[in-house]
Amino acid sequence: MIDTFVLVIATVVAAATPLLLAATGELVVERAGVLNLGVEGMMLIGAVTGFAVTIASGHASLGIPAAALAGAATALVFAVLTLTLMANQVATGLALTIFGIGLSALMGASYVGTPVAPLPKLHLPGLSDLAVVGPLLFGHDALVYLSVALTIAVAWFLKHSHAGLVLRAVGESAESAHSIGHPVIAVRYLACLFGGAMAGLGGAFLSLSYTPMWMEGMTAGRGWIALALVVFGAWRPWRVLAGAYLFGGVTILELHVQGANGIGLPPQVFSMAPYLATVAVLTVISAGKWRGRLNAPASLGKPFRPSV
């Protein structure tokens, strides 16, 4: 029973990690006032690059940074188009997703059907061997820990660092930030690159750990869930973390309910649950005294052209 529980939790962690990585990246992008809907495309490009570099070099330790770089490079395209050339962010983001789906399929065509060794689980002598707690906390691969560490770092950065304050100012009111001398466009560029890198890491987790292989369109909509998670988490890193694990947990729970048989609820109810929860959370935080906590960056999605 305990063993099963540990295995189930490990599955939930795996389901949540790519969502957490991509959503935390997008959170930073949106807190800087930019809406990048291209998460799905950036994840796919990260997934295929991470996979290809790992196969070519034989080291996932090279594949993972390469995935982040590829994600950032894809985001750079978006940033140039929307920040420098002032293209519409929504349209450009959607185009980026479609572009990413196609480009990743092209890049990955020769890797289809190639297996790769999954990322090794970290083994900490002593800790990993503890009963229950060991496999639960110390039995995952590096990207899982990286995703949590990066979320903590982002939370700290946004709340406690000067640069984080500048980034939030840029997202709340680009004009004000500009008028007191902050480089709005530069900050937004950096935020976009970070978001792309995180999406790339999320993709690499899919192709190197979750299902260690390359398949066209293997993100299967996770980029869109990551976008929803940012809203669900009201643009706060901790809530995004909780949301990612909740989404992951509910998807896995649905499968277990089906496997267990005999529970009266149809599985479709569980498939709907995360989305119902998103709607419910949005309704609650948008209404009445909670309203102030919705926290959407005031300049989100608005292009900014420096007046001087």
């Binding site: 293997m218 299967a220 089906q258 498939s271």
Partner: peptide, 24 residues
């Protein structure tokens, strides 16, 4: 034991279902 995914293709979800079945 059968788990329905309501999709033909989602590698991640397929893996999750396989794990859930093995857990069962």
């Amino acid at each position: 034991k059968v788990i329905w995914l309501n999709t033909w293709y989602d590698p991640g979800k397929e893996a999750d279902a396989a794990k859930a079945l093995m857990d069962g």
